[in-house]
Every structure is written in C-alpha cells, then in structure tokens.
Design a protein around this nucleic acid. Sequence first.
DNA 1: ATTATTATGCTACTCAGTTGCAATTGCCAC
DNA 2: GTGGCAATTGCAACTGAGTAGCATAATAAT
Lengths: 153, 153
Amino acid sequence: MQLSMKPAYLSHLQAAESAIRATGERLTQPRVAVLACLLASERASSHLDVAAMLVDHHAVDRVTVYRVLEWLVNQGISHRIAGDDRVWRFMINPQQTSAKTVAHGHHAHFVCEACRQTFCLDKTIPKFDVKLPKGFRPSEIDLLVRGRCAACV
Amino acid sequence: MQLSMKPAYLSHLQAAESAIRATGERLTQPRVAVLACLLASERASSHLDVAAMLVDHHAVDRVTVYRVLEWLVNQGISHRIAGDDRVWRFMINPQQTSAKTVAHGHHAHFVCEACRQTFCLDKTIPKFDVKLPKGFRPSEIDLLVRGRCAACV
DNA sequence: ATTATTATGCTACTCAGTTGCAATTGCCAC
DNA sequence: GTGGCAATTGCAACTGAGTAGCATAATAAT
C-alpha cells in the first residue's frame, strides 16, 4: 500500500454532484466532497473521519464539515447515528426517495465494541411491530446492536 | 406545591442502602443518595437531574455523580442510555438479578422529542430475533423509539 | 459583468464528561 | 473504641465534540 494511493471518495464526486444538483440547493465544493465521502464508505463516518479523508485533496474546515453533514440530513440524503462515544456518525440513506421527503422509519445498525465501526443492518433486520403505552406516538425507530464485527472476532 | 416539599428520593434511602450493602462494596453517602434518586424516578435521569435533586439535602460534587453512576452500571444495578443530545441517562435495571451479573440483553426506550424525557419500554416491547451478517457476534441490543409521549401530544 | 444571497472559514465559545491529586471517609484488625 | 490503610470524594484543570457570530468568499440569478 503506497502513501500516494488515491482516496476512494474521488470516484464518487460525479454522483455526489448530481445528487446535490437534484436538491435544487446550492452546489458547493464542500458539499460535493463531503457527500462523496459518505458515498464511498459502506460504514458510518464521523465528522472527523470525513475531515481526515478530505484533508489532502479537498481540505474543508471542520465547522463546515459539521454544517454540511447536518445539511445532508435535512435534505434527507443521509441520517445520523448516536454512538456510545458521544460522537455522531453519518451514513447515506439506503433508498433515495424524492428529496425533501424526510424518511421517518426504521434504522438498524451494528456497532463493533472493538473497532468502533458502525455498520448498517437495514437489509438483514426484518421489520417488527412496536406496541407503545397509551398515548405515545412513535416517529422513528432505531435498533442498535452492539458486539463484535466479523473482522474483530 | 410548596418549595419546602421533600424530594421524593428521601423515601428510597433505605432501599438504596441495602442494595449497596448487597454488593459488598463500600457504603458511602453519595452512592446511597444517587441510587435513591434513580430508585425514585421511573424515567431515565441524567447526571444533571441527579445533581439537581440532591442539591438541597445531599449535595454531591458533579464529578462524584459521574463516578457513582458509572459504578452503578458496573455493579449491574443500573444501565445507561445514549440520548440524541449527547447526554447519558441512567435508569435502574428492571429485574435485579444477583449483582455482578452484567445483564447483557435487550433494552427498549422511548424518548420524547418534545420534553426529552426517556421512558423504559422493557415491559411493552416483545423480544424479537436478530439475524446478523456472517461472523458478527451480538452482545447487546438496544431499541430506541423516538416520538411524542402521552403528555406531549 | 454586477449584484443579492448564501455558504465557508475562522475564532471563540459552550458543555458533557475526564484526569490528577490532595484531603477525607469507610472499613478492618486490633 | 482506635489506628492505619485503601478506596472514595471534592476540587481544579483539562479534553474534545459540537455551536455561534461575523467577516470574507463563492454561487447563481439578472
């Protein structure tokens, strides 16, 4: 593995650009770069992960990374996951419905206690019913499984 | 409602003391007081909730509150819940098995988006099976339902 | 190109939670 | 009870994620 290896997100810049264009909002370098990072990763990324990935070719201020990530959530493009280490992690939404439609539904994630990586389980976890006490209205359901991932057994 | 009303946790001091005695660890004022707070609340309490409850009759340093809460988790007496506001909340474990036995199992909570209160759903949510990708070993499963509680509809 | 609008970058801040250490307290042996 | 040691508390200073304000720069519409 060479130090000069190109970061993986570079091949997602095109896709990122068109996704952002589709929102009708402003197309900016940081938005394209941050979104490309999320597209390039199958796992959830923290603000720091993103900033570190971009530092060489698309350095972005850390505050801007926060703001862009939040913007992506508001656009319905990604969602955020609260980790045990009090760090938000972000991940592309699986099925891109029409933007502006806030996807309020199920999320299921696996977080490895050893390597801290967060995986998306939306494909493997079946839907299930939730019965709440009287008067309680659900808007979103998150399932979090902790344990060891395949690489950390 | 008078200002001089006695805080609810005072009536749980006895129970707290005997629970701490049962661990075989040291019996201290802060441990008794903090545990009594958790016993007195049906909802999850943050470190700040606890400190505020104790300020009049059993004032405890905030660092000590943190440490006692962590100790209670390690003793298997309570568990912690990560909130969307990056604040830990703590709650007595429902069925007290023998201390030292770390309860690794399901937890289910409801957090109200309006009042931020966290409720325990362990009684109302049925168990369900989780199928993980190959090689993934689960150790704990948390279910988090967001929405509006009965008081905030 | 010019201009109004919006996003970025920077600095400084907030706030939950942690660390180091000295002073105190609980508990055991006597 | 009293002495002594280990564990715990309290305090102060720190860390690190996330946020707010504002001047500058970039976008996109005219």
